[in-house]
Write a protein that binds this DNA or RNA. Structure first.
Lengths: 391, 391
DNA sequence: CGATTAACTCAACTTACTTGAGCTTTAATG
DNA sequence: CATTAAAGCTCAAGTAAGTTGAGTTAATCG
């Protein structure tokens, strides 16, 4: 969710510098290791300008020298790489019954993870739990606090009063206050707030299978089903931050139309198994049931294929992504099974020769995807230039 | 369609100025008339910087003084407005059998429109027709050529070799060459290329019902059905410029799944009427048939409601737009009928209290929507700051 | 009518990028 | 092996375009 009053800001020397820093950082990140001259060529800046920025970044210990690379004639460039300990990002995920937190370093490696039960869902309790957990994860991971760039906070959508309220997926509304400002004041760091699917999508870009991709979609299994869509490196948010509510679109299932997430979601698996007298509480239970070939689970899988295939077809045709990623709160075995069963229609803009990526991929971030994604939002922001200020 | 190698460029003084010019122009455009101090407050620039830019824009005759506005105490600000004749945009639409061209002034008013039959669809013929038509429309409308900012070219998508090739909707592929560069060289102006639905969406933003909107979706009736989606003022293009192929998604129709555009499109109306022995060639025929209550047309309308409702539900939940606009090559009477019949589900992120815009709106640009949109792309670019260069 | 407020201009100042000269390091060439 | 070319890089001067602060003009308020 973002302020709906974003404005495009004018540029001055200072903002240009900040923009250029992000351009340079972003290039170092995406290249892994890169020399100054190459950054200059790629960004349209002069070598001197890049040199100055590199000097700044080195002084701040955000980057390190990383050898030279002989490349034909001429003096081999000094290469630079991100210094992992140069910056850290907090990621917080708020679920109805628990709070999770992680710390990532600048390269996206996980430095620590903590969780806490949420005794109540009033705002004060949530805020206290979040603040305490952030403190704990930073302490336990021995993260230097002055190097924490910011925090991402993930809450299940949708945000604000919509027709989906009461669906059981939303946690609570924060109508009277901007959650980002609220948490920013509480944690004492810059905060970005997003829904789980969007954060999960960003997690894959920072440390998962979407590295190097600019336009892709992530089908996120939470309690429901969400879609995080990245276009040109930016999340598609919608007018109120509620884009991607794919779980609520009507899809065909055995001849009638049902909401997608009634057939394809964590909750729907649990219900299907419950109806067969089997109670599952975590992913391991489901994995075991799958390994055992439990009929109720197999039936659920069979029933999920048609609506999921329809959803993939819709996503492909509406967003023209480089790939569609499946991930979230579902065991890999189930995701793999679904990926193998989904019928990819040939009548799609995604059916094209010379694809660099498969049409379907499995997310790499596992169960903590959304929490990692929360932190990834912060890192992505650090690497994405944006001359845009909020009023 | 856009280059897939966009890079984020570094900022220098010159690029900052160009960015700031666009910020200022954009604010003048969206406000209609506005004073310098207000622009400064809204953009984060100093009054002096805005003053300098305003002086430049006045010298170039892109804007004019537009009176003073007494606003409480203090010296009333001198207001500025766009000077319509300060700049012009060419819009070209290439259809399988014809080429259309329009000229818009800086405020989006139509200065002239021309059309020509397309004798063949090879590249040379198309190029010649486009160049000739551009020349003609500029001559007839007496547009000063040195004030033409650029040209938008609209071609039916999808672009490149996709699984939708052969659907009859694509005109021809330009695999070996970037169409924008090609036409730019031929016309001698900067050129943007887009598909019809995206251009139509932009037309509504420049001169239609989407003025002032940042995030909305446009369901475009071409020969098929397309979706143009604008998010934060930018078109959602997809990895290969083929986002929005909504006509090809499977939707329910009378118990089975069919491609949306087989029930909701210009072609599908014509087929439905043809099957009843009625041949329609233009919108007027359809309007008359509607006025006469022609049973085949009424049956088509009835059959279109369910799939169209599903499509709207999908668009609302995936994009969370401020509104969904219906328009394109379909008479207003039909669009109005459809808008009245569509069932808007309450289980949608778009079902929210205090909406500023209705969930469905009819496009204002009429049959020339896509051609106007082609020109609107150019104007939008003139008003949208973007420190992004193409390699 | 004076005080206050706001818009605006002028001139000095500052930031950060660019440019050009020159140095260093490597590979290719004769 | 010496020479030349090519590429990376630094230093210092130059420049574009923004900001700042003082001062002017033109309204409203009391």
């Amino acid at each position: 969710m973002r302020s709906r009053t974003d404005i495009v800001a004018g540029a001055n020397a200072e903002r240009a510098r900040s923009h250029n820093r992000q351009v340079v950082l972003g290039r170092i990140r995406s290249a892994g290791r890169i020399g100054r001259a190459e950054i200059a060529r790629g960004s349209g800046l002069s070598i001197q300008a890049v040199s100055n920025i590199i000097a700044d970044l080195r002084a701040e210990e955000l980057i390190v020298e990383s050898g030279r690379r002989a490349a034909g004639r001429g003096q081999p460039p000094v290469q630079y790489a991100l210094r992992p300990a140069g910056g850290f990002a907090l990621g917080v995920e708020i679920r109805p019954d628990a709070v999770f937190a992680v710390v990532l370093d600048l390269c996206g490696a996980t430095m620590g993870a903590e969780r806490a039960r949420l005794p109540a869902t009033d705002r004060a309790t949530i805020t206290r739990s979040v603040v305490d957990l952030c403190d704990r994860v930073l302490t336990v991971s021995e993260t230097p606090r002055d190097r924490v760039l910011g925090a991402g906070v993930v809450m299940p959508g949708p945000f604000g009063p919509t027709g989906l309220a009461g669906s059981g997926s939303e946690l609570l509304t924060w109508d009277d206050i901007a959650p980002a400002d609220w948490f920013s004041a509480a944690i004492g760091l810059p905060v970005v707030v997003e829904n789980d699917a969007n954060a999960a999508a960003m997690a894959e870009r920072i440390a998962g299978v979407a590295q190097g991709l600019d336009s892709y979609a992530f089908l996120y299994f939470g309690s429901g089903l969400g879609l995080g869509s990245v276009q040109e490196g930016r999340l598609v948010a919608g007018a109120h931050g509620n884009a991607g509510e794919i779980g609520h679109i009507p899809v065909p299932a055995g001849g009638k139309m049902v909401p997608l997430e009634s057939r394809v979601s964590r909750l729907s698996v649990q219900r299907a198994l419950q109806a067969a007298g089997i109670t599952v509480t975590d992913g391991e239970d489901i994995t075991r049931a799958y390994a055992a070939g439990t009929p109720a689970l197999m039936a659920w899988l069979d029933a999920a294929v048609e609506p999921l295939s329809a959803a993939v077809a819709i996503v492909e045709n509406l967003f023209d992504p480089q790939t569609v990623i499946l991930g979230g709160a579902m065991p890999n075995a189930i995701l793999d099974h679904l990926m193998g069963s989904v019928r990819l229609t040939t009548r799609s803009v995604s059916e094209r020769a010379g694809r660099a990526h498969p049409r379907l991929m499995r997310g790499a971030s596992g169960r903590m995807t959304a929490t990692l994604g929360a932190a990834a939002l912060v890192l992505n922001q650090a690497f994405t230039p944006q001359i845009v200020v909020q009023t």
